[in-house]
Design a protein around this nucleic acid. Sequence first.
DNA 1: TACTCGATGTATCGTACCGATATAGCCGTT
DNA 2: AACGGCTATATCGGTACGATACATCGAGTA
Lengths: 193, 193
Amino acid sequence: MARRGAALELAVLGLLADSPMHGYELRKQVNGLLGWTRLLSYGTLYPCLKQLTRAGFIAADTETTPRGKRPRIVYRLTAEGKEYFTSLLEDGGPSAWDDENFGVRFALFARTSSPTRVRILEGRRSRLEERLENVRTAAATRRERMDAYTRELQRHGLESVEREINWLTELIDRERADAFSEHEDTSTTDKEK
Amino acid sequence: MARRGAALELAVLGLLADSPMHGYELRKQVNGLLGWTRLLSYGTLYPCLKQLTRAGFIAADTETTPRGKRPRIVYRLTAEGKEYFTSLLEDGGPSAWDDENFGVRFALFARTSSPTRVRILEGRRSRLEERLENVRTAAATRRERMDAYTRELQRHGLESVEREINWLTELIDRERADAFSEHEDTSTTDKEK
DNA sequence: TACTCGATGTATCGTACCGATATAGCCGTT
DNA sequence: AACGGCTATATCGGTACGATACATCGAGTA
């Protein structure tokens, strides 16, 4: 459980919720969005699409093409898929704090309720703080035996995580501040597309 | 080729070059050093140790234990392993700029020659710059269609990569400056922080 | 016109990876 | 004397994904 593919699944669902698309375009979108970490390959994408189709969450429409040329396959979200997607979105549990999942979850924040947004942000932060603590204590027992380069690597890594934590804290504060001015109105944050 | 396991292989070799160790300790060391990114599991470590043993690069000495208790297995570098290790260290080629490999390569910089250090640093930087460029152009064509959260994610990701690039540039400059004052003396660079 | 090159597009296969899990002795605490 | 946590070795099944194959298209260029 909590497979790596869960993140991709959610990303595909989210992209298709905006508009139907074929595989190649899907890959471009995902890479454009989360591409600074790791690139999505077809070996990952197509099996995922197949599985989602089998589950009935998306449907594949084969384009009618003029000639003997290979038709493109356009995927769209089904009613069940839409339902499944929204249920996934509201799950702000531990799996959403993971490295692989957090990025996708964040990218879909516009479709996520404010309480869930805060839950995910805080969970992610606690996850990183925990990691920071582990590395810090591990380093403390071994600091003297480390050479200058190893120490520099350590320092830089720790700084990156701290910076990430600060970013999250800022976002949480902002989220809480917004909650005041939000009465019953959801459309202000959505920007309705 | 350029398997993910290559990084682990190098890490194990590097750790064992310092002193013999058994598997559990090896795992702790690796996690303490690179643990802020991803944790090493036994399912990865033990097959790696087995393979390195088979290849003759490390040797497994079973500890003599007093009773019927399970003996610990201490691994040490063989002569062939040492040779293999140093040859790997001097390869500053493209595989060393990868996300998975760079951390380990950097941690072993104290054992790496200065030209190779610069080569790796510069290669890594070019790799990140390339990635930055790709995401930037991808984002430019789609900026208007993105909601506030997606844009914030994009911004933060880009900033992280830029920061990483600046760090590398600093290190490269420092490396070049050191090269002047380095006559025949290697021990001067070790202390300086 | 024909050629090359890069982008578009769908698809599969083999293998290396790694999370989960089993086993078990040891030690400190309640 | 029971519990939980740390040390320690080890394997297995599922899955992710890099490499690769195939095919069409438009733009440049010779």
